[in-house]
Design a protein around this nucleic acid. Structure first.
Lengths: 175, 175
DNA sequence: CATATATCGTAGGGTATCAAACCATAATAA
DNA sequence: TTATTATGGTTTGATACCCTACGATATATG
């Protein structure tokens, strides 16, 4: 646990008398939740996305948007199933996202010549430009995160998160 | 950016010829996404929740369920708004969750004597028992995570996640 | 070749979530 | 006290997500 981690429970609420245990100010105990990685992950993800969205300005931008553009850019002619797997969303979740990107002219697709079920996705020049803009915001966001976690720890943090993903995913597939 | 960060891009897709760039096996490049903390957070959170749900057995268990019970336990007579803030979900999201917990007899509520708008939430003995069961699963889950990130790093990981939450939240409120 | 099985993308159903609108009550200002 | 504003909780509307089912095509098997 290292540093700052008060008991987190003890008695916390002593008869309250006021209604709602600790009243003003937000001194609510998280109980065992505080040391539960899953909970902290969710909170961190929520707020991180929120901060990023705020940076981008939220207009013409939704979840999966940046991830999709980024992966398409890195993998020309990728199809939707592979894209969905790479970004970690269901293929059906991707359908409206892609429809959106097509409508905005960021992405272009054509049927594969070797598999007429599949589409080949690619960024348009406009899409490349848009991605570049988003990447700039992402970098700024990342710099802020560097400040918060410290340059020294960022590599470790990403490494740990990656390990969690790969290992737990392994556990799950190993049902 | 600091440490471990392999190119992650290079050329990745060379003319593909097959349709869908890299074909079988999942060698899809994540592009700059790989070093984007927000993305890794989302993936880690997804898979962590999935693993936990699998452990619990998913029956009579949904998101927010465990968090709510845990916080109510730690803060007797807490009201819904404060509970929602502590768990990080909107108060309106909490409404059906609480309704569910009431119906199952895990939670009990009564109007506050000092504020007739507010409810006072408390666990029933059955709720305490249920929480204890969930906490056991959470502990097992955590032990697995310890294995993955290493005992040494777990404290640091939680600390970093907490810092991200508090700092970014500060930024946001500071709009 | 013919049938069975797997895969790509879309559509529909269900849940979690937030935001905004709302009612009732509280707290504050006039 | 009365009017204004803030707060607790529910409802409604929209979005993101998953899962399942489906149609179309591919691949494998007889």
């Amino acid at each position: 646990m290292s540093a700052n981690t008060p008991p987190a429970k003890s008695k916390a609420a002593k008869a309250d008398a006021k209604a709602g245990s600790s009243k003003r100010g937000g001194a609510v105990s998280l109980g065992s939740l505080r040391n539960f990685i899953g909970f902290q992950l969710r909170r961190a993800q929520d707020v991180s996305f929120e901060a990023f969205a705020r940076r981008v300005g939220s207009a013409d931008f939704g979840p999966g948007h940046f991830a999709a553009l980024s992966v398409i850019h890195a993998n020309p002619d990728i199809n939707q199933v592979r894209l969905s797997r790479a970004t970690g969303r269901d293929k059906s979740t991707l359908t409206p996202v892609i429809k959106n990107l097509l409508k905005r002219g960021f992405v272009q697709r054509h049927r594969s010549k070797t598999d007429s079920r599949a589409y080949c996705l690619n960024l348009t020049p406009k899409g490349e430009h848009h991605l570049q803009k988003l990447a700039m915001h992402a970098e700024a966001h990342d710099r802020r995160l560097d400040q918060i976690v410290g340059d020294i720890h960022k590599g470790l943090l990403i490494h740990l998160l990656e390990r969690i993903v790969t290992e737990l995913e392994h556990d799950l597939h190993r049902t």
